[in-house]
Design a protein around this nucleic acid. Structure first.
Lengths: 239, 239
DNA sequence: GATCACGCTAGTTGCGTGTATAGCCTGCTG
DNA sequence: CAGCAGGCTATACACGCAACTAGCGTGATC
């Protein structure tokens, strides 16, 4: 009976038995605190949220860096779970999935904060997102919705950096607090910007093909790492 | 003779005479430190860089917040100087100007850091950039290079948030340290992503006009703040 | 049912920070 | 040359933090 419960939990969320302990409570509390208040949240705050004493955190995790690492790993795990959920269900899309309140919102904001903090974790999360965008665009191309690119890899990186960057900027400019509030504001803002996005994605920005054609004349087509004469894309508005 | 020198300095960089004092040295050192190491750089580090004692900073500025505010104001001033330089010279563009090593690089990275830190300063810098992008796109539209948008304001916000966000992401992911190094890497990365940018700006992303047309059918044209039925732009790759 | 071990807590330590204060020292002024 | 004001320094304080240590309690084991 007990083992049956454990098995069901393990099956549904892949959590190990150890997660039923206070150690897991601390980890989850830390994830929530980190997402809401940043990674410099004091031990005391985390401890209070997990209903344990501050010392216990040290006792279990040794140092703050170790706690952080474990939280990163857990969020990473949850993100991949969300991702495969999304990929399995073709009607879903990642933005909506990630902007859903609750667990998903927590994951999103945590990853944003990790990106904000920089370092190895930021790179890992980012690479993971790039990979995901590449998969989704590939599917959209196959479905005939999106034009193929001459360099799918670079495009995935570009789209990811810009999308995540814009989300990050919004997060930083918005005084919004709770993860749920934030993902809600992301959705509304996304809708406020729907028109320029659709315009850009449908009609492009330039009135003629000159710059693209000139670029293609200089360098060979597909995966280009080469340098282009000074300011190829530079006349594009600002940066 | 002395006054002549002062006048030339004042004319060339608009700095007041008071800036020749140690107070200005502290401010400049703080700007450099903030840009390179973040706003939580200790007083002592700033003091060492300015070759003064830590106490002198308090003596001149009162508090750290006041020092920060004065640095923000100074950077803001320098940015606007760069901006009007760029606007006066039609052959120049802001990205190249901001990515030039030296003073401009410092301004760029400082503003990025301010954005990174959030708060009022971040909003002010951002609004300033939006305004600038709006001017540049308006000029490009007038010159027939860029298609007009049905909502120029929203487009300027969109482009600014995404461009600055991407720069910020790159800054966070890159272990790069000095402002000069960073702006150099921005330029090279910009060139590495030139192809997807040109593709997107020239050809768009979608293969057909369906989503845009559907959107336009639902809401009136120009400055739209309205909400669109659930997932209008949602099928766009990721976010 | 006594013992042992482990989860857990309270209190303490040391460090780094921003800020306050008292004094030095240089360079004007009368 | 005396006096003195103000830029400037060095030292000291108070606070918040992570990390450590010793001890309490509870539940499993033989």
């Amino acid at each position: 009976m007990y083992s049956l419960l454990v098995m069901r939990i393990a099956a549904s969320s892949e959590r190990s038995m150890a997660d039923l302990t206070a150690r897991a409570r601390i980890r989850d509390a830390a994830i929530a605190c980190f997402a809401e208040a940043g990674f410099d949240t004091p031990f005391r705050t985390i401890a209070a949220r997990a209903d344990v004493s501050p010392g216990l955190i040290t006792h279990h995790f040794g140092s703050k860096a170790a706690l952080r690492a474990e939280c990163d790993a857990e969020v990473f795990r949850r993100y991949h779970a969300l991702k495969s959920d999304t990929l399995d269900d073709p009607s879903a899309n990642l933005l909506e999935r990630l902007a859903r309140p609750g667990d998903a919102a927590l994951v999103t904001v945590y990853m944003l904060r990790a990106l904000h903090a920089g370092g190895t974790a930021a790179r890992d999360f980012f690479e993971s997102l790039v990979e995901h965008v590449r998969q989704v665009t590939a599917e959209s191309v196959a479905a005939g919705l999106v034009r193929p690119s001459r360099d799918e890899d670079a495009r995935a990186r570009y789209l990811t950096a810009h999308s995540m960057g814009a989300m990050l900027v919004q997060y930083l400019l918005d005084p919004g607090r709770s993860p749920d509030d934030f993902v809600a504001s992301v959705l509304t803002q996304e809708r406020g910007q729907a028109l320029p996005i659709l315009e850009l994605y449908t009609e492009g920005l330039f009135t003629n093909r000159r710059m693209l054609d000139e670029y293609l004349m200089y360098v060979g087509d597909p995966p280009v790492g080469a340098v282009v004469p000074a300011d190829a894309g530079a006349t594009a508005p600002t940066a």
